[in-house]
């Protein structure tokens, strides 16, 4: 692919600077010929925490599926560069092996497959080696204790008959074991009670401290009380319409999404000026 060459030369030109962990450039994605993502731009560096907020139906989840390579989500144009490498043509398992991982909004049940068997197979696949059973057990038990996951969990079938909260805990347990460089969390906070939300957030923070970059996709601000993003982006009609620091999330909470829409339209004319200002207001990026 041509994009591969492009990204290589870019990396060489900026010799000292390593390529960003993830660089999404003008990404357009369609599902069954309907365009959902209409030009997304986003750069995430190693270890950063980004939050994407937006209304239901704004295309947030589409971005997570497209990043992980769901076959029904077709990239029609644009780039998805992971460590400078185009991943758009790769199968999901290839992306996983490079260090990308997605915590699903609606994790799928795999009847007849126990959690322990599943974890071992997937962790071995991603790490590319068979971890000795003892070592695997130790690591797993430590994480389970942290995430408040009981032993009996291991013998149950993956997500089969799990409550919403149990599914989300299993997602975070999996990601903690897989140790990705980029964790994409799709609405991980939905369906969680406050205790579960705290434990799950704690799990995410532990991953982030271990230098996993996190892309947190959420509808509500409440998770951001526990996981503190450095960057907040507002998603609207298939693209990012505003970006800012964590205070942007609070602003959204107070004033609603309407406000951003308004601002981004109003300000698109004087985008450059606003972007340079040091005010806490949103920085529209749609008109870049």
């Amino acid at each position: 692919m041509t994009s591969k060459n492009t990204s290589k030369s870019t990396a060489e030109n900026t010799s000292e600077k390593v390529a960003p962990l993830l660089q999404i450039v003008d990404l357009h994605v369609s599902v069954e010929d309907k365009e959902i993502l209409k030009g997304v731009n986003l750069t995430i560096n190693a270890g950063e925490i980004h939050a994407i907020m937006g209304r239901n139906g704004s295309g947030k989840s589409t971005l997570s599926y497209a990043l992980m390579g769901h076959p029904r989500y077709k990239v029609t144009s644009g780039k998805m560069l992971y460590k400078g490498q185009e991943v758009g043509e790769m199968s999901p398992d290839q992306r996983a092996k490079l260090g990308m991982a997605l915590a699903f909004q609606y994790p799928v049940a795999i009847p007849g497959v126990s959690v322990s068997n599943f974890l071992r197979k997937t962790v071995n696949a991603v790490r590319g080696r068979d971890i000795p059973v003892k070592e695997f057990r130790l690591e797993l038990k430590a994480l389970m204790a942290k995430l408040g996951v009981k032993d009996e969990f291991l013998s149950r079938y993956v997500n089969d008959g799990f409550s919403g909260g149990e599914k989300k805990r299993l997602e975070i347990l999996q990601l903690s074991m897989l140790k990705p460089l980029l964790a994409i969390l799709d609405e991980t906070d939905s369906g969680l009670d406050i205790d579960a939300l705290k434990t799950v957030s704690e799990g995410i923070n532990v991953m982030a401290q271990a230098d996993t970059a996190v892309l947190l996709i959420t509808h509500y601000q409440r998770m951001l009380n526990y996981v503190q993003p450095q960057f907040v982006h507002v998603f609207q009609d298939g693209k990012i319409v505003a970006s800012g620091g964590k205070e942007l999330a609070l602003e959204l909470e107070d004033r609603g999404y309407e406000w951003v829409t308004q601002e981004s339209v109003d300000e698109s004319a004087s985008a450059q000026a606003k972007a340079n200002s040091s005010s806490a207001a949103a920085t529209p990026v749609g008109a870049k």
Partner: peptide, 30 residues
């Protein structure tokens, strides 16, 4: 064999064959 099941397993690093085998094994587990 659902696209969603396959995608879920593949996003965890299993290739399509491994993912299908896991679903089949699970199905026959009883």
């Amino acid at each position: 064999v659902g696209e969603e099941q396959l995608f879920y397993l593949m996003s965890r690093g299993l290739n399509q064959d491994e993912a299908t085998a896991m679903i089949v094994n699970g199905f026959f587990e009883p």
